[in-house]
Design a protein around this nucleic acid. Sequence first.
DNA 1: CAAAATTAATCAATCGTTTGATTAATTTGC
DNA 2: GCAAATTAATCAAACGATTGATTAATTTTG
Lengths: 211, 211
Amino acid sequence: MDKDKIDKKDHILDVAEKIFAEQGYDGASTRSISGEAGVNMAMLNYYFGSKEGLFIAVFERKISSFRTLIQNIGNDDSKSAWAKLEWCIDSYVERIMSNSCFQKLVNRELSLNKRSDLTEKLTPILMTNVLEFKKIIQEGVDKGLFYEDTDVELAITTIFGTKNYIINSPHMVSLMLGYDVTNEAIMETQLKPRLKIYMKRLLKSYLVKQQ
Amino acid sequence: MDKDKIDKKDHILDVAEKIFAEQGYDGASTRSISGEAGVNMAMLNYYFGSKEGLFIAVFERKISSFRTLIQNIGNDDSKSAWAKLEWCIDSYVERIMSNSCFQKLVNRELSLNKRSDLTEKLTPILMTNVLEFKKIIQEGVDKGLFYEDTDVELAITTIFGTKNYIINSPHMVSLMLGYDVTNEAIMETQLKPRLKIYMKRLLKSYLVKQQ
DNA sequence: CAAAATTAATCAATCGTTTGATTAATTTGC
DNA sequence: GCAAATTAATCAAACGATTGATTAATTTTG
């Protein structure tokens, strides 16, 4: 069946994504990937052409699954800029924290600047989220809801930076918070709600004029 | 002379630090390091025992140079908690942004959890900075200067997260800010002052009660 | 049976490391 | 003080292991 083939490729991609995220591109060998996936090594090249092809494929799959998720709430005029921002923060925390394995992979790949072709492919994707936030914050500033001296761009680096720090340095963060943030249940019941509350209060006090 | 030997080892460490930061541990070959350093390959093993030994040595050197820089301003009672925090932000931005190459290396190494021995060695070092900030913020809360519902720990993840995001994703940040943040001059004249102002205003509005 | 999928075996290239030899510098013995 | 002995530094070459990739043979599938 065709289904089986797709399932198999998908299974390989699952394993590859995990191992790439854990060990990095160079650290992950095609043998370990094929071994963990339970397939012959040659199948990776048969399906994906090369190791780099497999790597790209991991990204393409996730990217296409992200594209459908990108919402455009910015043009909705029934909500205030702050209400939009609250919504974006909630959905962003919810969404990203559930893909931390892949996020880690993306961040590491961007910090190395090898594979500039991949960087160029990833940048516009990640930029859509950036621009989504930027549009909303800028709207708040323009309409006088947010402080005029707001540093819009750096405010965005704080949103992404705080999130990335938790994802990329879970060991440090776990020590700081006193519980294991890599634990799925804790992530869901403790970290996510706490992070949502925090991010909203942080940005509200920085941005919103009257409180 | 002994001086020459130390200089030579130091030169190798300089090159190794740069290449490790650029290409990652696995991506950096001993051949490329020795080649760029202009020394015979065998010298790396002669001096540092192994590739991993060289890697560790890069860290140890920087760590020991950091240790002397760690200030203890927390116990100074002549300044308010907010004044202390301002000072810490300024010096932290100043110091860290000038070592972005090494910082990148640290962050990537922590996101992979290989070499857990190195992680365990790095953690307490990085934690001293964390605890420095925590002590000050906690003091502000306890003395009623800062809001009672402050999330002290996540506030710290924001400080470090914002900084790391700029360091780890300079390509994205450059696109956002409209100038190349990896450029030394721009970093010094534009980014550093801007980041200091921003971080202080962000945390002031989140933390400090009367304004 | 033909096409696609899968396998084991093998490829050249590169990896980190080690070797034995050579040179330079330092210490020792008289 | 100066040859002899010892140590340290450096080198080219080669090591075995592992890498990603490919081949040719085999099995599965429709």
